[in-house]
Design a protein around this nucleic acid. Structure first.
Lengths: 186, 186
DNA sequence: AGAAAACATGTAATTAATTACATGTTTTAA
DNA sequence: TTAAAACATGTAATTAATTACATGTTTTCT
């Protein structure tokens, strides 16, 4: 007697919790969730719709979410998903659990630098310039979003988590840009 | 006429290039490579030995690396892998290519914060403290490694890429810790 | 009026990655 | 001397993630 359909223990699969968290904010469709992974939380988690729709079915089968069919216009069918009590419990349990693992991250550009052995290699400066532009424009984009989404304190108080995540993303990009600038020759 | 055994175009699979890069530094065994993913480059890429050994076979079949059998002690068999000319070419081509994609990253802790709606939620401070300790100790660890691996300028010049990667990791952790401290109540 | 972009939902196929299984040797420290 | 840790190499099974396939509606812009 071993498996019961559910993974043994030591679960990974954070996607399910993130979806529960998003649905806890308000009922949403799979499409809406996919947009969230492109926008507000895209800096810290990614998922395609092809991963989201099956997960919604799985969560519904597990009784953690439920859906209501609605129609937009003449016949465009939508499924609005909502958390059940069980889903809300599971979400709270996840958030309350410690997160003692350092998140592994991957950075192809930094690795390319790693494989360049000498400081005088002529490839270094163009590479740094390319990344500088890339991260600089990403930083601008994030800063603009912050200005439009959080123009005042009231907006911050209403979506504190969203504010934190954007602030963290901006700080991260900002320091990445500074690090690049440090090695860029004027 | 479509597939030729190789992925159509727009290849991902960076692992192969990273292995080529590591082998370009010096001939190494699969075990050595696995250690590198735990240590010097572990901050920016991860791979298990179960991913590495099959990839070594694949690269050898493609004629990009070759191996030499050696024996340690009485009978412990090792395979020292080396880059071929084709492998070195492929590595250079990869490094020289632009890296115009922002690396997607994942951070479970930041997402948990995102799902906490109000600044007064009692769970925030303990969570921040936990992460502060985690990242603080990681920062110390990296700083110590920098001191031992790069005690002087000569050491830096001999492994400039390694120095850059460690420096970047330290800066990243350092700013993460600062960001956490900013929201920590004294 | 027509075209393009955005909305909306799914499945299939493939690839990447992790975890578990499996085995044996050599070195180091108690 | 003996046990543990580190060295060394592989495969199998599972899960996660991406890319491609597949279809249709509504809204917005020209």
């Amino acid at each position: 007697m071993k498996s019961r359909g559910m993974p043994t223990i030591g679960q990974r699969n954070r996607l399910q919790y993130i979806i529960l968290g998003l649905l806890n904010q308000r009922p949403q469709t799979g499409y809406d969730l996919a947009k969230a992974f492109e926008n507000e939380i895209g800096e810290f988690w990614q998922a395609q719709h092809s991963q989201i729709y099956p997960m919604l079915k799985r969560l519904e089968a597990a009784g953690e979410i439920s859906h209501e069919d609605t129609v937009t216009g003449e016949k465009l069918a939508k499924k609005q998903y909502t958390l059940t009590a069980a889903g809300r419990e599971k979400l709270v349990a996840w958030v309350s659990q410690p997160s003692p693992e350092l998140t592994p991250s991957k950075d192809e550009f930094i690795l390319k630098l790693y494989f360049i052995k000498t400081a005088s290699d002529p490839r270094i400066q163009p590479m740094l310039r390319e990344q500088y532009q890339l991260h600089q424009s990403q930083l601008h984009h994030l800063q603009q979003r912050q200005e439009t989404v959080f123009p005042n304190q009231a907006a911050i108080d209403q979506a504190y988590g969203h504010y934190l995540i954007l602030d963290h993303a901006i700080e991260r990009e900002s320091h990445y840009v500074e690090w690049l600038a440090q090695y860029l020759e004027k």
